[in-house]
């Protein structure tokens, strides 16, 4: 039971943290809970489908199906996160203003809610399909009873959910003034980490072979297999043995996101001047 709880927890860490961040980013937005739940539901349904066809996906595209599928999913999530940050760069100031003026947390803007829902769906799908395969494997082959398996799985999920809650409560204690810049950076690192993982899959598929050597090794100081390492991996994209390719993808994504946000951020309130005239 304990081992299945640990494995399930390990698999849901990333999705858990992402859900926590999304809930914090969208605090006060109407429809955020249904959107997050929709993302979650699509992810769960998707992971059942993916797990069912795991063999087929793996064998597709000359055996590189799983890698290409994963890198496409991660690539899509990265695009959604970039889009979210760009959206926030162009509307964030108004939003922060609105929040202060109304003196409440209710913001009617739709924001990039759907983009974030897609990110949740992808994170849940990617990790959920592994959980399904793992649990199914135990169910068919091992002596562990169904009750034990269920208990282990549920414990793992509960731990994952508490990580979501922890992330959320940690973030919402940040004053509204700083919240958007903190979450903006978090989302930038999240996207960069995903991009670095996406290129690893491309390398594994044999599509990208350059810069495959490991640049540094901090596994003796902080292995990314322990809890703290895994959390930092999910939050910031921490990898204890990054390849050159991963570094290029990571830094490239950060540069693109920071660059775009700076360019798109509107010049200070031209609208208000017009309104006042």
């Amino acid at each position: 039971m304990l081992s299945s709880a640990i494995i399930v927890f390990r698999e849901v860490i990333e999705a858990g943290i992402i859900i926590g961040i999304v809930l914090a980013v969208t605090r006060g937005v109407h429809w955020r809970v249904p959107m997050v739940l929709a993302g979650l539901a699509i992810g769960v349904a998707g992971s059942l489908v993916v797990a069912t066809f795991a063999g087929g996906i793996s064998a597709a595209l000359a055996g590189a199906g799983q890698e290409i599928f994963n890198s496409l999913l991660l690539g899509t999530a990265v695009c959604m996160l970039i889009w979210h940050n760009v959206w926030m760069a162009s509307h964030g100031r108004e939003l922060a203003c609105e929040m202060r003026q109304l003196g409440s947390e209710v913001v009617t803007g739709k924001r990039s809610l759907w983009a974030l829902a897609i990110v949740i769906a992808i994170a849940v799908l990617r990790e959920g399909s592994e959980v399904v395969l793992f649990m199914y494997g135990i169910a068919v082959s091992e002596t562990a009873s169904a009750a034990e398996l269920l208990a282990g799985g549920l414990t793992g999920f509960a731990l994952g959910a508490s990580l979501s809650a922890l992330t959320y409560w940690g973030l919402v204690t940040i004053p509204a003034r700083y919240l958007f810049s903190v979450t903006g950076w978090l989302i930038t690192f999240l996207a960069a980490g995903m991009a670095a993982q996406a290129v690893t899959y491309l390398a594994q598929a044999g599509i990208v072979t350059a810069l495959g050597d490991i640049v540094w090794d901090t596994s003796a100081i902080l292995p990314d297999s322990v809890l703290l390492g895994r959390i930092l991996h999910a939050l910031l994209g921490y990898v204890d043995q990054p390849t050159g390719l991963q570094l290029v993808a990571y830094l490239g994504t950060v540069a693109v996101m920071v660059g775009l946000s700076h360019l798109i951020a509107r010049p200070q309130q031209p609208k208000r001047l017009v309104a006042g005239a």
Binding site: E130, F134, G137, T200, A203, Q204, G212, I214
Partner: peptide
């Protein structure tokens, strides 16, 4: 019959292999 995730940190491999 059960799935396995073939993994290697140094080799940068992570692949789920169904049963």
């Amino acid at each position: 019959a059960s799935a396995e995730e073939f993994e290697s940190k140094v080799l940068k491999i992570e692949k789920v292999i169904a049963g």
